[in-house]
Write a protein that binds this DNA or RNA. Structure first.
Lengths: 161, 161
DNA sequence: GTCAGGTAGTTGAAAGTTCAACTTCAAGTG
DNA sequence: CACTTGAAGTTGAACTTTCAACTACCTGAC
């Protein structure tokens, strides 16, 4: 972080990096727009609903949810607040831990998610997966997995925590 | 978009897709944080400065800038407003087009950008490029280029425009 | 010339996100 | 048990982004 020389990207690397940034922006915008248009929920909201739907009882602790989707706790509090107001999710106090709060996917929420999933999966296929070969997409997954491994739990140097 | 069957991802595809989403979130958060911490600018702001710096006179029209970084015009207006207040950018009226406004990178802005670029490039290398082989990263670029090509200028069906 | 329609950009309010302060409860220590 | 420390969540304000309405100007048709 304190080198004096800047390790510039090669021309090829830079092209790939720019394609990555741009493609990503377009992709996320598009998936978000499709969900909003068809079902009235945003992509971040959708991701929360997916996590909830994958647990046995469709219930999760707030912090668990925050970690899973990689949002701040505060953000999850606000988001769940909105989803609760729409009847998609219900807040429950946690029995084992007096401080804890659980978010539970309601029946209506589950129904919404099932409809939204169709739109979402179709979008992911059309705008990404089907544009690459199986091998190419596997490579993308491998690289992004490496990114995750390198970054997860790795905080900037200054702050030890 | 109106099929009744949902074309679910295979297990492998889903793993790659999730790695993509998560890795991406972590990567963007990290690059943004590094820039804020070291130079007080956000990643979207940095991207705007880069575009400006790449033109001969470090000047660009607002709409040009918006298209380049894929932000709404309104967003660019607000962002440039903030950057202008910090002395990083200057707004100028456009001679050829009375409606037009140009953003010009100031000397201080350019100096800031040069410092920030070091941080940014190092981050992109450390957290992405250097984690993959040259071939792997080229594949990522290729796939994301395909995404861009498929999405650019392609608006959702309902709205023809 | 003038009028219609479109493009460039801004504006302010609404929506969403971040940030720091705060409350409540849990767990470990003496 | 009392006390300290820390974790779980929430809160409201500040900040960023989006959205819809608006001003100003350009262009082409008549």
């Amino acid at each position: 972080m304190s080198d004096t020389e800047t390790p510039w990207l090669s021309a090829d690397e830079q092209h790939s990096w720019r394609a990555f940034v741009l493609g990503n922006t377009l992709l996320v915008n598009r998936l978000d727009e499709e969900l909003r248009r068809a079902h009235g929920i945003s992509l971040p909201e959708y991701e929360i609903l997916v996590r909830l739907s994958e647990t046995p009882d469709r219930v999760m602790r707030m912090a668990q949810l925050a970690d899973a989707v990689c949002h701040s706790r505060s953000r999850v509090t606000h988001t769940i607040g909105r989803l609760e107001k729409s009847g998609i999710v219900r807040r429950e106090t946690c029995l084992e831990d007096g401080r804890g709060v659980q978010a539970r996917l309601t029946t209506e929420g589950m129904a919404l998610l099932e409809r939204a999933a169709h739109t979402h999966v179709l979008g992911v296929r059309t705008h990404l997966v089907d544009l690459a070969t199986v091998e190419e997409f596997a490579t993308v997954g491998k690289v992004m997995n490496a990114v995750t491994d390198a970054l997860i739990g790795a905080y900037p140097e200054a702050e030890i925590r």
